[in-house]
Nucleic acid binder design. Sequence first.
DNA 1: GCCAACGTTGGC
DNA 2: GCCAACGTTGGC
Length: 159
Amino acid sequence: MTDSEAPNFWLMKTEPAVYSMDDLERDGRTPWEGVRNYQARNFMRDKMQPGDRVLIYHSNAAPPGVAGLARVCSAPYPDAFAWDPDSAYFDARSTPDKPLWFLVDICFEEKFSRLIALSEMRADPALDGMALLKKGQRLSILPALPAHFARVVMLKETA
DNA sequence: GCCAACGTTGGC
DNA sequence: GCCAACGTTGGC
């Protein structure tokens, strides 16, 4: 199976105090800049493609949880924030000739009417094995199984 | 290449 | 604010 077939499924973390689901709804589309972890970068640079589906997760929040849905809506491209000395995401090792960090654009799809809390996901046997729920998981971008993605979407319909 | 020290993430 | 878990850095 080639990369151009079925969409992939992801979970992307954001701190709502920095950038929330409401911000994404307002913006409609945003470059997912500032990822400075190689594994997370590799997911964006090597695996993501337009149309991929994304659970937007609020980390460092009270409570933490999935706030809504988005889609990957660009091909991967270099993160220009790494070239800006005034940016918090500046990294002198990255240059326009040899970019080190990459990103994709993320487009708003749906804000859930209620947050699917981390505690609720932990308690759901249908989500056993979900990467997000593994101990010590700190990656800001995680692949999700289609079944887990669908289960989270189903949970939003329940009270 | 090892590994201790350090910094960051992120739940609680 | 605490701290466990993990990634990165840098001395050797």
